[in-house]
Design a protein around this nucleic acid. Structure first.
Length: 394
DNA sequence: ACCTGGTCCCGGGCTCGGTTTT
DNA sequence: AAAACCGAGCCCGGGACCAGGT
């Protein structure tokens, strides 16, 4: 284990826990490069990116596969390594003298989930180059920001990695390629998404498919997380297998279920995960689920709203209107009812919440007048979100 | 007819970077 | 050098209108 990891663990882990050894390891949003048995796909991806390693820019490339297959994890690892070798970023210290003389292209990465306009696209791209502090959040024009980005990109050969090209929260691929084209010069890019290449609205030179995990691989991933994050014997191999079987190849869901089960065992003050914890942990992950990354890509005010939404009672969640009133009237949310209502509908459009038709057979709710209400429920794992959100607050 | 839920849209005010004036 | 001003994008709040029920 690396020294950094040991220190991190000490810092995070002041409170000795009976079951959790290192909470951060159980976090489904943490990019651990547990890429067991994915070597084949990693090689294919590296082959497709090969020009990047000899100092020229790779062709336009599209990496695709289902949710939870490790696309983002893999790309993050590769981009991080490239930039480290390149002398950018925090890991630059690891640069070896052998590669230092090469001029590797610089990698700009943008998560489209955090892009709502042309302005924010350029902003995110610039932030990945020079850090968040050095990029204005407002006060400058879109043209001005585009020009700054262009200057940066022209200073060195570079290409852009665009993650989540088909996410409903972000702009369309065609819009993004249009924005890229507005920066002068040829801008190669690597897209990452779930859509089959044939259904993508732009043509790409090369594609690499990253299929879902196989069950036994997923169990290995869970095993390595459990080993690092939980106390010994906190969870059995059979229990991990049960989670892995259920998770249909989705690493996000599997890790979220393990984390949920852990939280339940922890709250009951057990020193090992029970069968009931596993069952309830699995039930605490909605299906189909939306990745926690999407929730944490939302603005802070939205995350806060969701956090307090999860604390509401069932009666307060009976309809969108009732939920909006309860949240607006509460002490924690500083928004008007009409705004909360609109935001809830927007979050449902984004797929962070799911609308459920409220067909009430015995009419215990409402007077029956008007259009029947629907309620909203989370599509992300609520237990995990609450735990992660409250820990980042303190 | 009347009522409530849901969708769409936009203006005003806010915050912040950049520019001009003091 | 400081203060006042200007203009950019974004968020909040709400209004207009449509949908679906008694």
């Amino acid at each position: 284990m690396k020294i950094d990891d040991r220190i991190d663990r000490r810092i995070r882990d002041e409170t000795a826990d009976r079951i959790v050894r290192d909470r951060a390891v159980l976090d489904p949003t943490a990019c651990r490069t547990d890429v067991q048995d994915r070597g084949r796909y990693v090689e294919r991806l590296l082959d497709a990116m090969a020009p990047a390693f000899s100092g020229s820019t790779p062709p336009t490339l599209y990496v695709w596969g289902p949710k939870g297959a490790g696309k983002t994890t893999l790309m993050t690892a590769i981009v991080g390594r490239l930039n480290a070798l390149n002398g950018d970023g925090a890991a630059a210290i690891h640069t070896t003298t052998r590669t230092a003389h090469r001029r590797l292209p610089r990698v700009v990465s943008v998560d489209l989930r955090q892009v709502s306009s042309e302005f924010t696209f350029y902003r995110q791209a610039l932030m990945s180059l020079v850090g968040a502090e050095a990029v204005p959040s407002n006060g400058v024009s879109t043209d001005g920001l585009r020009e700054r980005l262009g200057n940066r990109l022209d200073a060195r050969p570079s290409f852009v990695v665009i993650d989540h090209v088909d996410d409903s929260m972000g702009p369309s691929v065609t819009a993004v390629t249009g924005w890229l084209a507005r920066i002068d010069g040829d801008r190669p890019w690597i897209g990452v998404g779930r859509t089959h290449p044939d259904e993508l609205s732009v043509d790409v030179a090369r594609t690499v498919e990253l299929p879902a995990y196989r069950t036994h691989t997923l169990v290995d991933v869970l095993g390595s997380r459990a080993e690092a994050g939980l106390t010994p014997d906190a969870v059995s191999r059979e229990q991990l297998h049960a989670i892995g079987e259920w998770a249909h190849g989705d690493a996000h869901d599997a890790i979220a279920a393990l984390f949920s089960a852990t939280l339940l065992a922890e709250s009951a003050d057990r020193d090992r995960i029970s069968e009931a914890d596993v069952t309830a942990g699995i039930e605490a992950v909605p299906y189909p689920s939306s990745a926690l990354h999407r929730v944490f890509a939302l603005e802070e005010s939205r995350q806060e709203l969701l956090y307090h939404f999860l604390s509401l009672s069932e009666s307060q969640r009976q309809s969108v209107g009732a939920t909006a009133s309860a949240l607006a009237d509460g002490d924690h949310v500083d928004l008007k009812r009409s705004t909360v209502r609109r935001v809830l509908y927007e979050l449902a459009d984004d797929g962070v919440l799911r609308r459920v038709e409220h067909r009430d057979p015995d009419r215990s709710y409402g007077r029956g007048r008007g259009r029947p209400p629907s309620r909203v429920e989370p599509t992300f794992p609520p237990l995990v979100f609450r735990a992660l959100y409250s820990s980042q607050e303190s």
